[in-house]
């Protein structure tokens, strides 16, 4: 790929980014290509070594906040005409409520993620506390002479403690998975705003 083609693709893929970010990214890669050529490498091979345009943009996406991307997307590229402003104001009962609805959905998703994690660990803690309580209870039960019940309590308690330990390992993995999923969703939301230009 030649330089012009590479920059064209990069611009397309980055079309939703703040224009300042696009320009500085292009100038960064432009300089790298110049330096590589000066170092005796070919233009095509250098651009090849950068990897796919998509991976370049994905790496950048992680650094740009959602609010910046949204601002760039919703800020008009030209001055609004007066009738457009009137329409925006008249339409506010619709779009304000839609906006609030969208925000609440995002918020509930966020809360959902965290409450899942909290619920998992609460369950784990319950097994552990319940198990320990049952083991302690079994001693007192034994003391009053109810040996069969005491054995049952002891067994149930140990099962509870054991379960909580085993589940603990599983939950660590699950928590990580949920956190990763959350990060993926955020990148996905950012991608909606970046889009593919026109």
């Amino acid at each position: 790929m030649k330089r012009e083609e590479f920059f064209k693709q990069l611009r397309e893929e980055m079309s939703g980014f703040p224009s300042q970010t696009i320009e500085s990214t292009i100038s960064y890669y432009d300089e790298l290509i110049d330096d590589a050529i000066e170092d005796g490498k070919s233009e095509e091979a250098t651009i090849e070594s950068f990897g796919s345009v998509e991976s370049i943009v994905n790496a950048l996406l992680k650094e740009v906040s959602i609010s910046k991307l949204v601002k760039e997307k919703v800020t008009p590229k030209r001055k609004l005409k007066s009738w457009e402003i009137v329409l925006i104001i008249l339409g506010s009962p619709i779009w304000v409520s839609l906006g609030i609805a969208l925000l609440s959905v995002c918020f509930s998703l966020y809360v959902g993620f965290w409450s899942t994690i909290v619920a998992l660990w609460a369950a784990d803690l319950a097994f552990m506390v319940g198990g320990i309580a049952a083991v302690i209870g079994s001693f007192t039960t034994f003391a009053v002479g109810a040996a069969p019940q005491a054995t049952f309590f002891l067994g149930a308690g140990l099962v509870g403690i054991g379960l909580s330990i085993v589940l603990g390992f599983a939950f660590v993995a699950l928590t990580k998975l949920i956190a990763q999923l959350g990060a993926k969703i955020i990148t996905g939301i950012k991608k909606i705003f970046v889009g593919k230009g026109k």
Partner: peptide, 22 residues
């Protein structure tokens, strides 16, 4: 500068042009 930084670091740690920029 960018090119030199990558040259200096790549023997030590995996770094590419697209990771350096962010």
């Amino acid at each position: 500068y960018g090119y030199q930084i990558i040259k200096d670091l790549s023997p030590l740690i995996e770094i590419s042009e697209s990771t350096l920029y962010p």
